[in-house]
Amino acid sequence: MNEQQNTQVAQEGYALFSKGDIANLLKLYTEDIEFIVPGSAALIPYAGVYRGKEEVGRFFAKLHEAMDFERFEVQECIAQGDTVVALGYGKGHVRATGQPMEEEWAHVLRLRDGKVAHFQVYTDTAAVGQAFQRSSHMAM
């Protein structure tokens, strides 16, 4: 596939994610997809390395349980060969703590035969992890 087609696959995936259509999103991934979300799973419950569609489906379930996004948007996609880099922004709150979370992110997608075979997240894991910490300040 060419760069424009690869970019369209990436954009379709983000559109499906935004609608909460994870079943159809998973169809855009190869059977052996490797999905990497940085950070400590002790702090960020959905952090980790997920392999295969079933594990990636569990990632999306963990993400939904952990986060409530009010905004999640792709600002730019840059493609070269079979690689697409998506730059974006997310804002929401952590369900367990109520803490706000705001992040700029980069995702690197590597495609094979028109499907995403590798997905790597880059973000400020310290800021994301902090949102999962309960506030040490008590209201008086």
Rank of each mutant, 00 (worst) to 15 (best):
Q4V: 00
V9H: 01
A10K: 01
Y14E: 00
A15G: 12
F17H: 01
S18R: 03
K19M: 08
G20E: 06
D21S: 08
D21F: 09
I22H: 03
I22E: 04
D32C: 05
I33M: 11
I36V: 15
I36W: 12
V37I: 10
G39I: 03
S40F: 01
A41W: 01
P45C: 00
A47S: 14
G48Q: 07
V49P: 02
V49I: 10
G52K: 11
E55N: 12
V56W: 01
G57V: 14
R58N: 14
F59C: 11
F59P: 03
K62D: 12
D68P: 01
E70M: 06
E70F: 09
F72A: 14
Q75Y: 00
I78M: 15
Q80W: 05
G81S: 03
V84M: 05
V84N: 08
A86K: 02
A86I: 09
K91F: 11
K91T: 05
V94Q: 05
R95N: 13
T97E: 02
T97A: 03
G98N: 10
Q99E: 03
Q99R: 13
Q99M: 08
P100F: 13
E103S: 12
A106G: 14
H107D: 11
V108F: 02
R112A: 08
K115P: 09
K115R: 15
V116L: 03
A117W: 08
A117G: 04
Q120M: 15
Q120D: 15
Q120R: 15
V121M: 14
A127K: 15
A127L: 12
V128N: 12
Q130C: 08
A131D: 04
A131N: 07
A131I: 03
F132M: 12
R134G: 09
S136C: 02
S136T: 06
M138Q: 10
A139Q: 15
